[in-house]
Design a protein around this nucleic acid. Sequence first.
DNA 1: TTTTGAGTTGTTCGA
DNA 2: GTCGAACAACTCAAA
Length: 476
Amino acid sequence: MTTLVWFRQDLRLQDHPALDAALARGGAVVPVYLHAPEEESPWPAGSASRWWLHHSLAALARQIESRGSRLILRRPQDCGTELLALARQAGATRIHWHRRYEPAVIERDARIKARLRAEGLECESFNGALLREPGAVKTRAGAPYQVFTPFWRSLLALGDPQPVLPAPDSLPTPASWPHSLSLAELGLLPGIRWDAGLQATWKPGSDGAHERLRSFLARGMAGYAEARDRPDLEGTSRLSPHLHAGEISPREIWHAVGEASGGKGAWRESRFLAEIAWREFAHHLLYHFPETPLRPLRPGFERIARSTNAKALAAWRQGRTGYPIVDAGLRQLWQTGWMHNRVRMIVASFLVKDLLIAWQEGARWFWDTLVDADLASNTLGWQWSAGCGADAAPYFRVFNPVSQGRKFDAGGDYVRRHVPELARLPDQWIHEPWRAPPEVLAQAGIVLGRHYPHAIVDHGVARQRALAALKEQPIL
DNA sequence: TTTTGAGTTGTTCGA
DNA sequence: GTCGAACAACTCAAA
């Protein structure tokens, strides 16, 4: 009896319930990955995500091969048809996969499952991505939570997630293998090789994920709550792209935190696991409010007048707004496919409030450029910043890019790293070069408007404009 | 059903 | 320099 294991956002062998269940039944296993971006419209993986996916698949294929098996790659228009064909070619009677929670994917998977069953195949899906699935965490009234804190308390009350499943030592192979494309034939890598910065920053794959987790836990959790807000430090785990690709599971992280703390103290309530819980919360919200990637959770916000200033949007994307911390963030994103969380909030506030541009524009840009682009987390983050989502920031909370820079990048290291033309500016002026005395600018080799742009808006003016625009809207 | 306390991440102003 | 209040009103979740 042969089982197809359809790998999706679960590119790992450890803690893999779909694979584990296939092995438990005995018989051969055929590991399959299908690249079908048309079926994920309107959110097919962006360029940075595809780069990650390429390398993550390479890592997974190596792991599978080291266990005497193969990863079959295909590039179908229609996954249902392809799975059916693969099952026939491999003599498989069962198909296993892990559930995903994006609206278009849920719909597609339901269609596929019905079709495969109608064709006489056994189909089973599992939870491989979340501590608790949507539906497991509900208010007493049975409704989905829309506020994080009670959600988190409720999640904690459910206790520890199930123990981590070990990776198998070997994978039993079928009598004959279906044909596989080469990884290059999936066409995931960019035509123009802009990916040097990504290559230098990341190690996609399960091994890379576990190295990150190990070094993060070794630094200790004591200073995390403060260090995580400092873009100039290595204070965060940087596990987000690994989690998105499923190279590591949240259950593994949960239990690893417990072990690292020796099971002592309030490790379950730690700030770090709360961040893992935010990821869960984002998935719950996406599941229960599937229209939110495109529309505000709070409908009153749809009527807010928004600018369509293409030049301002382009300046924001390119990191040429004239606000150093904003530009540093957007350039870090462009170069490394990632941006520090604190800076994500700063650039989001700047786009949505200072420039009055729709949050959806920011979400789209992040979608294409982030290696951790995740529909649930990206949607939650942008709606939170725009003030139109769950647990949203109040409308009058407008980040000041200068004071945020001073507070969280006091020494200017982060700005200097990503905006090298400002590198010689003293700390005092690094976050507001327009206020530096002319001789200081000259000494730093900067002519504003030539080496570094003038600020595209005056934050004081922009803040007042944003407050007025948001205030005058009747928020139903 | 109604009430009540609370809600990740801020800024500015004036005492 | 420091501190508290104001910046709104709404919605959620539980009692």
